[in-house]
Design a protein around this nucleic acid. Sequence first.
DNA 1: CAAGATTGAATCCTCAATCTTA
DNA 2: TAAGATTGAGGATTCAATCTTG
Lengths: 171, 171
Amino acid sequence: VDPGTVDPDPRWLGEDERRAWLRLVMLLEVLPGVLDGQLRRDAGMTHFEYTVLAMLSEAPDRTLRMTALAARSNATLPRLSHVVARLVDRGLVEKRPSTQDGRVTDVELTGEGHAALVQAAPGHVENVRAHVLDPLTPEQVAQLEEIAEAMVATIPAAQRMLEAWEDRPER
Amino acid sequence: VDPGTVDPDPRWLGEDERRAWLRLVMLLEVLPGVLDGQLRRDAGMTHFEYTVLAMLSEAPDRTLRMTALAARSNATLPRLSHVVARLVDRGLVEKRPSTQDGRVTDVELTGEGHAALVQAAPGHVENVRAHVLDPLTPEQVAQLEEIAEAMVATIPAAQRMLEAWEDRPER
DNA sequence: CAAGATTGAATCCTCAATCTTA
DNA sequence: TAAGATTGAGGATTCAATCTTG
């Protein structure tokens, strides 16, 4: 816009870039806490745990192997292993070795797990609306999709996660 | 756009909303790891530690009290206290009780700390460019600023953090 | 008693090493 | 030997409790 404010030095950020970046960093710092906080208070679960349950609820037979679940939730296998162990302790999922391949572990959402998810969903959606969707115009929602997509495309792990999400029979 | 795809039920997300939200979640899951990873590998520090050092470097006398530092970095006081203790151990900052008010602790960036920051900055900026700024058009950078600002405005803690950042003598 | 800050326990994530089966 | 998954140690964050000074 005003050429005088443009910083040509690629080693630092221009004013417009700095303002956008600052606000994005703020979001990265604060939003996870907002999501986690609401779910923890109202449903006794982490946002990550919610994601795991949600993935299973949409899978055929409400069952996914560890590797597939890890891909859809952007978790490392060790992290997922720990989290699933806790969910088993709470009775929200069940774990058993596959009959097809002795190396793979199948994880299935239990009735209790499904109930917990159904109970948690409305409050979570309301929270997302309040802090993310409602303050945006429909045009901005569309812009956000394209902007986030462009960034995700530069990160192979995120790209794979997105494909795992959308490469489903439905939706 | 197509009225047939609009979901009128406020308890769930419409298709456009879902797509935007999914991509934002992906970013929230992945970007912190990308930022942390680069800084950890190349400079041996966390993104949060980098932020703390950066705040101090821009403060008068390169000094800030704990509360002010916490406000600018979106940290709880306990978290900041732990992190600053580690930075003291590494010689990157110094800590001393204020002469004005015995309750407050002043934190000052050391020469070593400034050197570490200067050394870390170029790689960090390059990383931010690669994954955030470069994949966006200038228009999208401007849109991102407004979108993130709208979300931040719904979160009082983030709002205060932003004000603390921009209520500085310069910039 | 309020404000500024620290401490410690509990929890969760990361990373490397390990184990089991194909 | 590679693929799938688990384990355990170390680090970082959170929360509640505590301490000190105004």
